[in-house]
Amino acid sequence: MRISMSGTRRWMLATALCGVLITGCSGGGDDAKPQAKPAAEPKPLAVGALRPMLLSQADLGTGYVQVQEKPDSEKFDDVSVQGCSALEKLGQSGDETMFAAKAETSFTYDTDATLGEELHSDRPSVLSSKLRKLFGAYTSCPTYTMTAGTTPIEVKVAKSATPQLGDEQFAYTSTMELPSGAQVLKTMAVRKGNVAVMLVGAPALVDRQMKTAVGKLPSGS
Rank of each mutant, 00 (worst) to 15 (best):
S121E: 08
V81I: 09
T15K: 11
P179H: 01
T175A: 06
S128P: 09
C141N: 02
D59S: 01
D110C: 11
V197S: 04
R123S: 05
L50T: 06
L50H: 05
V190H: 07
K186I: 13
D167L: 04
L134M: 07
A86K: 15
S56H: 03
T105R: 15
K216W: 08
S26V: 07
L13C: 07
E118R: 15
L54S: 06
L17G: 14
D31V: 00
A86S: 15
V81K: 07
T114Q: 11
S140A: 12
T97E: 15
V65H: 04
D78Q: 09
V155H: 05
Q57V: 10
K89I: 12
L55G: 00
A213T: 01
V155T: 01
T173D: 14
S73C: 15
S174Q: 02
G19R: 07
Y144T: 05
V206W: 11
V67S: 12
M210N: 06
S128E: 13
E96M: 03
T114D: 12
A202T: 10
M176Y: 04
T145H: 00
E104K: 09
A202R: 13
T111W: 03
D30Q: 03
P34F: 01
M53G: 05
G83Y: 14
A39C: 10
S4E: 11
M53H: 05
A36R: 10
V195F: 00
K70L: 15
S221I: 04
G29S: 05
D110Q: 11
S174P: 11
L127H: 00
A161Q: 13
K130N: 14
Y64H: 12
Q209H: 10
T105P: 04
D77G: 13
D59H: 03
F107Q: 01
V190N: 08
Q92D: 11
T114L: 10
A58E: 11
G193K: 02
S93W: 01
Q82P: 02
F170A: 05
K211Y: 08
G166E: 07
A49M: 14
K102G: 01
W11V: 14
S128N: 06
C84Q: 05
A39Q: 06
V206R: 02
V126Q: 08
D30E: 02
E168W: 07
T162I: 06
N194I: 10
D77A: 15
A14Y: 13
D78T: 10
V155D: 02
K186P: 13
K75R: 09
T143D: 08
V155K: 01
A171L: 04
V47L: 15
Q169C: 04
T150N: 10
R9L: 13
M146Q: 05
F107I: 11
G181Q: 09
L199I: 07
M198A: 00
A101E: 06
E74R: 03
P52E: 03
S121I: 11
G166W: 02
A196E: 00
T162S: 03
T15E: 08
A182D: 12
S6K: 05
T111M: 08
M12A: 05
C25M: 15
L50I: 06
K37H: 10
C18W: 14
S180L: 09
A189Y: 09
A36T: 13
C84V: 05
Y144I: 03
I22T: 14
A137K: 08
V214C: 07
G181H: 04
D31K: 08
S180C: 07
